[in-house]
Amino acid sequence: MSHTAHIPSHRKPRRSASRVALRAGVAGGVLSTIAVAGAAGPANAEPVTETIEMPTLTSGLAGSIAQSADATQQVAFTLELRAQEDAAATKAAEIAKKAKAEAQRKAEAKKKAEEAARAEAAATERASRSAARTTLAAVSTSSGSDSGSSSASASVSQATGSAAAVLAFVQAQLGDAYVMGSTGPNAWDCSGLVQAAYRQIGVDLPRVSGDQSTAGTQVSLSNLQPGDILYWGGAGSAYHTGIYVGGGQFIGAQNPSTGVVQKSLDWDPPSGAVRVL
């Protein structure tokens, strides 16, 4: 006996030919019955048809497309409007910048013109004072060092510009009374008269003698010019002031007994002088 005689086989058992023939016969019979039934029906029967209505999707899609188009158009309109606003703002800024530059240019031109006018006026004034002082010096030299009030009057008549105005003012006050603390128009003290004379030409001097003695540039008594302020006492602590009118003469409100007088420097020699003009 072989070793495999008792081991069962794992193969599927073969179907018998009779079972296969039986199943084939049954299937064929069924198919034949269906064929006969079909042939037995009416020859002219119409085929059965049925319409199935599919849901319409285009209406909702069209609405969505329309909304999208509107939104796109609105965005385009907004962007165009913003571009126009930006362009307008840029143009306005350029116009403002040009206007500002033009205003600055005009302001600078005006400033330069004013500075030039002031410089020209100052130069004219300096030339006028220089000419007046030269004329007064010439008159003083030809008239002598102490020729009295007539020499001073000649100096005043020849003077021009601011110095001439100062000298004319103090000469017009000759004979007025001296009153302590008075500033005119018919009575003066020494510093009140000096202050008023310079105020006529737009120069504001301090009120008291001590301050007036340092209000300008200190000058030597040997180099005096008409219009210089003379002072008696120390610079900054002077007790009396007057105005040099040329020809070795000065005018001042001296005291209650003399009033406003014109005298020679030798009559009451001053301590010093300051030049304002």
Rank of each mutant, 00 (worst) to 15 (best):
P8V: 12
S9F: 05
S9R: 15
P13F: 04
A17D: 07
S18G: 13
R19H: 06
V20Q: 05
R23M: 04
V26H: 09
A27Y: 06
G28T: 09
G28W: 00
V30S: 11
L31K: 08
S32K: 03
T33Q: 12
I34Y: 05
I34H: 07
A37P: 08
A39W: 06
A40S: 07
A40Y: 02
G41C: 02
A43W: 15
N44D: 15
A45M: 10
P47V: 06
V48A: 14
V48I: 08
T49Y: 10
T51A: 09
T51D: 09
E53N: 15
P55N: 07
L57W: 13
T58W: 07
T58D: 02
G60R: 14
L61Y: 03
A62V: 10
A62M: 10
A62S: 09
A62Y: 13
S64Y: 05
Q67N: 06
A69S: 13
T72N: 08
T72I: 11
V75S: 13
T78G: 10
L79M: 15
E80N: 14
R82T: 02
R82P: 00
E85R: 14
E85F: 09
A88E: 07
A89E: 09
T90S: 00
T90I: 00
T90E: 00
K91D: 11
K91C: 01
A92M: 13
A93Q: 09
E94H: 13
E94I: 12
E94L: 14
I95F: 03
I95P: 02
A96V: 04
K98Q: 06
A99I: 04
A99D: 12
K100R: 14
A101C: 01
R105A: 04
A107R: 12
A107Q: 10
E108H: 14
A109L: 07
A113R: 11
E114F: 04
E114D: 09
A117L: 10
R118L: 07
R118T: 12
A119F: 01
A119I: 07
A119V: 05
E120C: 00
A122Q: 15
A123W: 14
T124F: 06
E125K: 15
A127V: 05
S128H: 00
R129M: 04
R129Y: 05
S130L: 13
S130H: 03
S130T: 10
A131V: 03
A131M: 13
A132T: 03
A132I: 02
R133D: 11
R133P: 01
L136N: 04
L136W: 01
A137E: 10
A138I: 07
V139A: 07
S140I: 00
T141Q: 13
G144C: 00
G144R: 01
D146A: 15
S149A: 11
S151F: 02
A152Y: 01
A152S: 10
A152M: 08
